[in-house]
Every structure is written in structure tokens, then in C-alpha cells.
Amino acid sequence: MNRCRTMLFMPGNNPGMLASAGSLGADIVIFDLEDAVAQAEKDTARILVRNTLTYLKPATEVTVRINALDTPYWKDDIDAAIQGGAEYILAPKCAQASDVHTLMGAIEEAEARTGTTKKLLLIALIESALGVENAFALATSHPRLTGILLGAEDLTAELGAKRTAVGQEILYARSRIVMACRAAGIKALDTPFPFVTDLEGLAADAAFSAQLGFDGKAVISPHHVHAVNEAFSPTAEQVRWAERVMVVARRAKEEGKGAVSLDGMMIDLPIIKRAERILSRAADTTETCNA
């Protein structure tokens, strides 16, 4: 998984929204077969998602959010995602490593059956207290698990917490997931901001999410894409600083020096790594803009 600043949810049974998904500026789009689709329309949505993927080939990477393991739909959803050529499966309600093993078993079986050479990657959606507590076990459960997304609505409902724009009630869960994902070397993806018309709150929430260390954030409205992309993109000032750090670090290496300083700040390995991360993100952003 490369760019994942924004992951935009699109309802799986809405052909107009699915068709436009690739042009809305999100790094990844999520074709949702779960909560956005009524029980009676699971079959029609699944076929529509498969056809949209097959015939329209959206310009962005696509994740299919399948239905949960406790429903009769999830295996057929996986088949549709594979047949359509999606890049990722987003699996809801993951709470323990065995959930990932069950999912990956079914994905591998379906890939073998269809003879596809493209390998689906899995993103686990953690949205329960048990899932948060098992975050590291989940994060390290399978090599094809590429990221974890926090789902704060179900989580706060289970906790009996009030969901707010500031999000103090999910700080622990967010931090825990970032920590687990960093330790496991996979992507940490933040919960959507649920207050659709509060764009000021969205910008603050996305900035805080980036500050915590998330790689990106799910969004539930196309109107949220720009602000979240911006929050997860380095500023011009940050890029200039990172470039100067790399110049100083290279010079120090050539001159056989250990630690050097820049603007009164000691430049050592953690600072160099931060600068590299900023430049890597800046390169990703440039690619997105040129795509």
C-alpha cells in the first residue's frame, strides 16, 4: 500500500457514485457492501460492484468492504472483489488474529479457484474493545494484512462513550492502533470524521490524526477529501526543512562527522528518518497530483 491519505467510502449499490469514485481525489476508494447496503440488496450491490470494477476500472486503488464473518455474505463478497480485480478487502469487525486467518483462508481459496495471479491485500477494521486490545496480535497475524483501520462509531457505542468532534473518547484506541501498526510495519488508518458538515472540526481532527502518526484516514463524504489529503501531505516548509536536513546529513557523512547541527538542532538518525518520511510523503503527493 502506497498512498493512503484518504480512503473514501462509496455505497456499493449506487451506480452513479461508484462510477464517479475514481475522480474525487481520494487516494483509495472503498466500495461498501456492508453498512451502506440494505439487507435485501446485498446480491444486487455485489454484482454492481463487481461490474463497476471490471468494466470501468476506477483510476484509483479500490478496497471492497465486505460483510462481516457472522453474516452469510462475506465469501460471495470476496469472490466479487477478486473477479473485479480490487486491490484490497476491508474486513469489518476484526477482533482477533483468528478472524484474519479465516479471511485469508477464504481469500486464498477463492484466488486458487479463479486462477487469478493478482493477490488481494487485507485491511482489518477494528471497531470493538476486544479488537483494540488485540491490535498487535491482529497487526502481525498475516503477511498480506497491509493495514488496520479504526472504526470509532461501533467502538464508542460499545464503550458507552459519547462520540465528539474533538475525539478525546477515542484517543487511547487511536494511539494503541498507531503503536501496533508501527511495531508491525503496516499502515495505521484513522476512523472517519462523522460530522459531515463540520469542516472546521474535520480539519482539526485530520491534523491531530496526522500528528498521532496515522498514515491516512477514511472519509465518508467527497467534501472531506481535500482537507484530509492536505492534513496528511507535508507542507512546503516541512519539505524545505527535510531537504536541508538531508543535505547536512550527507555532508556530515562525507566528512566523517557524527552528529551535526542545523538551525541549532542536532541532526541525528531519528531526525534524518523523520526528514526521509516527509520527503517520501511529498513524493507520493506529487504523484497523486500528476496522476
Binding site: 454484482i47 454492481l48 463497476t52
Partner: peptide
């Protein structure tokens, strides 16, 4: 105003 892939999907369903 459905696209062809949508017509196919709705017919299949």
C-alpha cells in the same frame, strides 16, 4: 441514464 455495466449488473441480479 445507466451505464452499460450497470444495465448488465441489474439484469444479472
Amino acid at each position: 441514464g445507466a451505464l452499460d455495466c450497470t444495465i448488465k449488473a441489474r439484469m444479472e441480479a
